[in-house]
């Protein structure tokens, strides 16, 4: 095997080791994240909080503004995701109602 072949093989080996270390052993630490990166149960709870406030205050503009922070395609999609997860996770009927209430309000405004 020529020296150049060995040289490139060793570079590939180093590259592989670097990727394994940088992606698996010591990945970039998760700091300063956004709402969009939250786990689905936290996102659902966030949406539920918005729904709780909306149910009391009926301020749809404020609710949409808060849901936009989740950075989903649309605020309606955020509520639909939350409803889906809440249904799978056996959320209580009152909480499901609050989410549906918010969902209906957004759908009605569109």
């Amino acid at each position: 095997m020529s020296r150049w072949t060995i040289f490139f093989l060793v570079i590939l080996l180093g590259l592989g080791l670097g990727l394994v270390y940088g992606w698996m052993i010591n990945p970039v630490s998760f700091q300063d994240t956004t709402f969009n990166s939250l786990r689905i149960d936290y996102k659902t709870d966030y949406t539920l909080m918005v729904a709780e406030v909306y149910h009391q205050e009926k301020d749809l503009e404020w609710a949409l503004n808060r849901l936009t922070l989740l950075d989903d395609p649309t605020p309606l999609a955020s509520v639909e995701d939350a409803l889906r997860f809440a249904s799978q996770a056996d959320y209580t009927l009152p909480d499901m109602f609050l989410l549906r209430d918010l969902h209906n309000a957004i759908e009605g405004a569109n």
């Binding site: 060995i6 060793v10 570079i11 080996l13 180093g14 590259l15 592989g16 080791l17 990727l19």
Partner: peptide
């Protein structure tokens, strides 16, 4: 070569 590969990775 190894160091170069590691840095790139």
């Amino acid at each position: 070569g190894l160091i170069l590969g590691l840095v790139i990775g």
